[in-house]
Write a protein that binds this DNA or RNA. Sequence first.
DNA 1: GGTATTTGTTCAGCGATTGAATTATTTGCC
DNA 2: GGCAAATAATTCAATCGCTGAACAAATACC
Lengths: 412, 412
Amino acid sequence: MSPTHAPAGAARQGSLRELNLALVLGRIAAADRPPSRADLATATGLTRATVSAVVEDLLAGQLVSEADPAPRAGAGRPARGLVLADRGPAGLGLEVNVDYLTVCVVDLAGQVRHRTVHRADLRPVAPADALARLVDLAGEARADAARQGLTLAGAALAVPGLVDDAGLVRLAPNLGWRDVPVPELLSGHPSLTDEVPGVPALVVDNEANFAALGELHSRPPGLASFLHISGEVGIGAGIVLDGALFRGVRGWSGEIGHLPVHPQGRPCRCGGRGCLEQYAGQEAIVAAAGLLRAELPADIATARLAELAEAGDPDALRALHDAGTALGVAVASVVNLLDLDTVVLGGGYAPLAPWLCPPVLAEIAARVLTAAWSPVTVRPSTLGPEAAAVGAAESVVRRIVARPAGWLSRSG
Amino acid sequence: MSPTHAPAGAARQGSLRELNLALVLGRIAAADRPPSRADLATATGLTRATVSAVVEDLLAGQLVSEADPAPRAGAGRPARGLVLADRGPAGLGLEVNVDYLTVCVVDLAGQVRHRTVHRADLRPVAPADALARLVDLAGEARADAARQGLTLAGAALAVPGLVDDAGLVRLAPNLGWRDVPVPELLSGHPSLTDEVPGVPALVVDNEANFAALGELHSRPPGLASFLHISGEVGIGAGIVLDGALFRGVRGWSGEIGHLPVHPQGRPCRCGGRGCLEQYAGQEAIVAAAGLLRAELPADIATARLAELAEAGDPDALRALHDAGTALGVAVASVVNLLDLDTVVLGGGYAPLAPWLCPPVLAEIAARVLTAAWSPVTVRPSTLGPEAAAVGAAESVVRRIVARPAGWLSRSG
DNA sequence: GGTATTTGTTCAGCGATTGAATTATTTGCC
DNA sequence: GGCAAATAATTCAATCGCTGAACAAATACC
């Protein structure tokens, strides 16, 4: 999107420093090698004097630390390299899903510094109890983070459902949740993180959105635009535009599972007909392949399907091809609409990508007007099942990197 | 989208003033009544001293002028109201389409101050000649603008086709254009506008994109997000997110005409099957209604169709209902994906909206998961056929309002 | 006519950036 | 080893633009 809209608030004296803190820190985060102050000065256009002053603030606030510089040939005083600190603020990522709870801690550099996966069937568990268990795990994570010199600056919770801006889970069908007020249920518990100005204590969002952010993991923050599709029982998509998640007017974007791919086709639980979910959802694929899903947890069923396909089982191959074709129709719609150049298959789709990608690419080639000029990449996700939790944690640290002033004002 | 990404450039001393110029000017533009300096101070959070200084710059640069204030009850020195100037910079909007050329001038306040529509069949005309005619019309527009005290600060050209970032028209099928380098063809002619720092001399883009911007016409600049669908021979959509046009990675977003609504249906000229265009494009509707389109210009055919529908002609009504249903399937996809709350039917769809809206709404209600919680508005465009040209011109003035510093640095 | 009230301007103070000068530290050459 | 060149980082006076308070201007109300 072109940066044409007016700034949000008044630009006071201090705004200048805030902007330059963000600018310099962003450069440090985006650099592939530790930059020197001089590098930063030339890269940002600021003077070295200013960069030094800004870096001093960042060092004092434990956002960056000095490292051995990139070796350089030639004469001159050696530079001191700057890297994101490994003992400053960190983000807490949480996930509640059907089969597991996950908690993880991600530092400024995007490294996962703590991770817990607690496998359990959460469907029979009341939301309040599920959240209570999560709080316990989060407490351990916080203690572990503290041992590593990390301060949890904010938390984000991924949920497989629709979440409104206030953190109310309107509907998480596979979990059996409806109108669950997460912040309210957590208010009785001790706080998960430290309080940091400008960083919300807890953000709740759809797992597909956070999984998409996870895909930015260990990637320089920048202008990436892509579609990340989480293929579980339902199918959700996270849309990343210019490096930022697009959440829609009310935060309910990405419901790709209910794009009609056969408008007069099978009825869907959403009330519509022929939704993608009915043709490319996990249950549909597994049923089409002739597997009895009822007893299998989702990930086991997926693994089994991949085995069968690997072995050349014709039913499995046909099921995957048909699902991929349906998925391709939906993806072609998205690409025609948004002109994205990358599509990432995540969640349950990742292990099935070898069989899903070809039909998806075929549909794109056939249906996308501009495909001839500009190829669309379709690839599996780089993260595993913990993508959503990592992405959630990452969303916290990205916020700090984008606006370090809040953190610094806390730290004194 | 959350404003989480880092600022583009270094924040230098002058950036502060640039930001506040934009902030104050944006407030003046957004206000429904002429605000006083004191109003602006409380609204922006700046001090009155700063606002006065900023306003002085804006007055000197002919971006705002003083007007009679809004009458106020009570004691106190009367305020002086500030309005966008009606004799400062203006935008030049151009459109080449199949049946006409349009040129218009829009001032800062969004008023159309000049308009020329030159009807002609442009298909047999070579691109260079069509552009030459446009340059002539633009010259007259510029002279007329000068008489009104307006300075043309930039130009934008709307074309019914795919345009890349450099202004190369890759493909405009209905016009018969292919790989037309517009800026190059115009380079021999006298320049259309004055040169203003920060404002490109000419922006070329898809008519659907500009028509969507036109829908923001005379509306306060803000966070509107909507989908604007231009139903012509082809069907294009402009996506406005948070008040800004979304152009996609390469500027080719909005190809809603090629969303598959019947994946195994009629073959489309794009190579795919069952594209929306085959069911809701003008030719499809007119043919389904039993009209002989071949001889009729598009707008006449649309008017005839509206007459027939008004008279209760069953073929016309059925054709419109079927088209609306197909359109609704595509719109439901978009809403599921992007969570927009408003859909605008523009171009050839506007006069047909009374018959298209009901089936579109029905499909949305049936297929959009979140429709139950949050209604989606579907309404016809407020602008007529000149929406694209007005939107193009408006894009220029919006850029100036968003970044007044460039204009001011020119003006001295 | 006097007072209260609101608008808009003036001015000293201050924070942040700038640009030049200065200090620091290494390489390369004699 | 000593010295010049080169590059990195810091120091400091100057300047720009915002702030806050005092002040001037203009009107309504008593």
